[in-house]
């Protein structure tokens, strides 16, 4: 019996950790959706870019990879802003399908530019704390995962404060609630679009750093699946709802880990979609979703 509890508590912990990456991705997607009402299927490419930026700076400077959050996050904000300006702004309001299709083009460009720059071999970096473990209940867990969970919480709190306590954040929220109204109040909504897209990309970049630090390998094609799952999460959690994204992220992270524990690893990707489809059949707007959209 005690053995089973140990196993379950361990699996819960891995789920929690996996959830962190998804939550960061999903929060970004959600923010962008809230403001621009578009879905960026290429969001995973920002995650991938984040891992590569972390990798390059780590190899060049040898800094503590956690410090490199200060590199990946701002760089991705800039990349996000450029992407928004060049690819999404021109097609805003021209039809929902176009957004999906533009994302496909962006996926191809990002993946292969990265492959040209860094080759498409699998890369990995090591955390400086990789040998330190901490006991969590009855199991030993590496310190890194606590740091990762901690950083995720800090980022989310920071984001909350930014959105609620700064005028810029309030402007973003206003645009998200009522675009026309915001425009009438003198908010430059196009700037808000760029900013939001940048923040979303930055969160994905931070997720990329965490991905790399936790010792997971990465290559130019690794971004798509986590991003699609991130998207599944916001659908489960309800579009536009940050709390929903966090719950959804945890649900997916845990479900995946329990599925590979019970049904086998082959079902790991499929299970998030099964949950997604069930949720959509039961409630087409998502668990926490509002009436519209």
């Amino acid at each position: 019996m005690e053995g089973i509890i140990t196993i379950i508590s361990q699996v819960v912990f891995w789920g929690l950790y996996a959830g962190c990456i998804y939550i960061l991705l999903a929060t970004g997607l959600n923010l962008i959706f809230g403001v621009m009402k578009i879905v960026n299927f290429a969001h995973g490419e920002f995650l991938m870019l984040g891992t590569y930026i972390t990798f390059s700076f780590f190899v060049l400077s040898g800094f503590n990879p956690y410090v490199l959050l200060c590199a990946s996050l701002p760089i991705l904000v800039v990349v996000g802003i450029i992407t928004e300006r060049l690819c999404f702004r021109p097609i805003l309001g021209t039809g929902k399908l176009n957004e999906i299709f533009v994302s496909l083009g962006i996926i191809y460009v990002f993946q292969n530019v990265v492959a040209m720059l860094w080759t498409d071999e699998w890369k990995t970096i090591q955390s400086p704390y990789k040998d330190i473990t901490i006991s969590w209940g009855s199991v030993q867990v590496p310190l890194d995962y606590f740091i990762i969970i901690g950083i995720t919480i800090c980022i989310l709190i920071g984001l909350y404060l930014f959105l609620h306590r700064t005028s810029l954040g309030r402007a973003i929220r206003a645009t998200s609630q009522n675009r026309k109204g915001a425009m009438l109040m003198g908010i430059n909504v196009e700037q808000m679009d760029m900013l939001t897209f940048g923040i979303g990309a930055g969160l994905a970049g931070a997720a990329g750093t965490l991905w790399a630090v936790s010792g997971q390998v990465f290559n130019p094609y690794m971004g798509s699946i986590p991003a699609i799952k991130g998207f599944a999460i916001i659908i489960i959690g309800g579009l536009g709802s940050i709390a929903g994204a966090i719950v959804g992220g945890l649900i997916i992270g845990l479900a995946e880990n329990f599925t590979s524990f019970t049904l086998g690893g082959a079902w790991k990707d499929a299970v998030s979609f099964i949950i997604l489809i069930i949720v959509l059949i039961v409630k087409p707007t998502g668990l926490f979703g509002g009436k519209d959209e």
Partner: peptide, 20 residues
């Protein structure tokens, strides 16, 4: 026997079940 998807990088749960 436990399988994982090609390109997988998170084996923690799989390994936990193997360990048991």
């Amino acid at each position: 026997n436990a399988s994982f998807k090609m390109g997988e990088s998170d084996f923690r749960t799989t390994l936990t079940s193997v360990k048991s």
